[in-house]
Design a protein around this nucleic acid. Structure first.
Length: 395
RNA sequence: UGACCUGUGAUGUAAUGGUAGCAUUCAAGACUUUGACUCUUGGUGUAAAGGUUCAAAUCCUUUCAGGUCAU
């Protein structure tokens, strides 16, 4: 009998995952990860992880499977929280949950599971895995969850073949309502529990307060750039090479403090991200202001009026070579190769048509349509049909 | 310190003497396992004091504040 360790989070999805595996005849062990115990920065009610761990325990008892708790908060702090601070400090916007999957759930946690004699690790993610044989080797495909509304493949976009090989996603073929129904039928305590939100393991946080632990506030200017600004209306020049054109399309607009007028003050440029609307505290404009650029060195935030402000849009982005990740290593592009894919630059964004171009220093992703708020530090994930084949950090 | 103009929520602006409205900001909720976006709902105001009038943001007087012209 194959042994599977399920990461029980105390939510309905992992509860049902555990149940399904048991039904399928696996030797199932439930393992709860405790990754955070500092309540001071969370918004939600007291001690969410205590409730979660209790719910996980009750589910395990109900299913009659062994249950354990592991404390990974040290690793979580080193690999996720510190990464967050570093990224924000550099003026980028990290995606901690993508990292959490790569570094914690499917690395630290997986190793613990394997040390318990597990053949597989399972989670409650809404995505699917399929294993095919190609040139005599096993190749694992990471497929979108069947529920289009809950597909979580994006958060797993940094997983490797090695990690996928030892992974099961039992709820990926189900729709969320079906999962809830199974939980209800099995009388699992998590059946009606609200979906988790916010940073996994930490919960909803007030980001500025959270970041203030490490990043000191400092007052700076908020500048408004008019959409009539001349740099938006330059003609696209002729290019000598494709590479030059790609470089042009993916280049950011560069702003200077004299390009617009000062409309307000902020308490630190690194608390803001591109595309952000709330939190600027600047009113009086006919249309809302959106952040179009942050400059953490000069501590200046550039904003533009309205959702359609040209400063918000770009057609292409670049990923440096060491941040290009192929889930499907066998599909990796060689220099000068290109491929048409569907891509997204944030969770739950509809897939957009794009073309990948590999050059010697990295890879360009050129979208058919201009994309709003392409943000450095976030992940772009690309798909062929419903298969996530690769991802990278936006530079 | 001679003459003129303007004062409406946090901000920008509407209202022939007749229910102070809109947008933004802000807040709460919904959505969401990042950060965001989006959606719904909500809050605050006529610079001050008098006067005319059934009725004043609106007309008159004074005060205060800001701005403009000034041989």
């Amino acid at each position: 009998m194959k042994r599977v360790v399920v990461g029980l989070s105390g939510g309905v999805d992992s509860s049902v995952a555990a149940y399904l595996l048991k039904e399928q005849g696996y030797d199932v062990i439930g393992l709860f990860m405790k990754n955070w115990h500092d309540d001071t920065v969370t918004i939600s009610d007291e001690c969410p992880w205590l409730d979660d761990s209790n719910d996980a325990l009750l589910v395990a008892e109900k299913l009659g499977i062994p249950f354990q708790t592991v404390d990974l908060s040290e690793e979580y702090k080193e690999r996720i929280v510190d990464y967050m601070f570093n990224e924000y400090e550099r003026g980028r916007t990290p995606n901690p949950d993508v990292l959490c999957n790569r570094e914690i759930k499917f690395d630290v946690f997986m190793k613990i599971a394997l040390s318990l004699g597990a053949d597989y690790v399972a989670t409650g993610h809404y995505c699917r895995k399929e294993t095919i044989h190609k040139e005599g080797k096993e190749v694992h495909r990471l497929l979108a969850g069947k529920d289009p509304n809950k597909d979580q493949s994006y958060f797993l976009c940094q997983l490797s073949q090695e990690q996928l090989a030892k992974t099961l996603f039992p709820v990926g073929e189900l729709l969320k309502p079906e999962v809830r129904e199974i939980a209800a039928n099995q009388d699992l305590i998590t059946a009606d529990k609200k979906d988790s939100q916010g940073l996994c393991f930490i919960g909803k946080v007030r980001l500025p307060e959270f970041l203030q632990q490490k990043l000191q506030p400092k007052q700076g200017k908020i500048i408004e750039i008019l959409s009539s600004e001349e740099k938006y209306h330059q003609l696209v020049p002729d290019f000598d090479s494709k590479k030059e054109k790609l470089e042009f399309l993916s280049s950011k607009y560069k702003y200077d403090i004299n390009d617009g007028k000062v409309v307000g003050q902020h308490q630190g440029a690194h608390y803001y991200t591109k595309g952000q609307r709330k939190g600027l505290a600047v009113g009086g404009t006919p249309e809302p202001l959106f952040v179009i650029e942050t400059d953490v060195d000069a501590n200046v935030i550039y904003t533009g009026q309205g959702k359609n402000h040209p400063g918000l849009y770009r057609k292409a982005l670049f990923i440096t070579n060491d941040e290009v990740h192929w889930v499907r290593e066998d599909l990796r592009l060689q220099v000068d190769q290109e491929i048409e894919v569907m891509a997204r630059i944030r969770y739950r964004q509809p897939l957009e048509k794009a073309t990948l171009y590999q050059v010697d220093s990295g890879m360009y992703v050129v979208f058919e349509n201009n994309q709003s708020a392409i943000t450095e530090g976030q992940f772009v994930a690309w798909y062929l049909d419903s298969e996530l084949v690769g991802s990278g950090v936006i530079s």
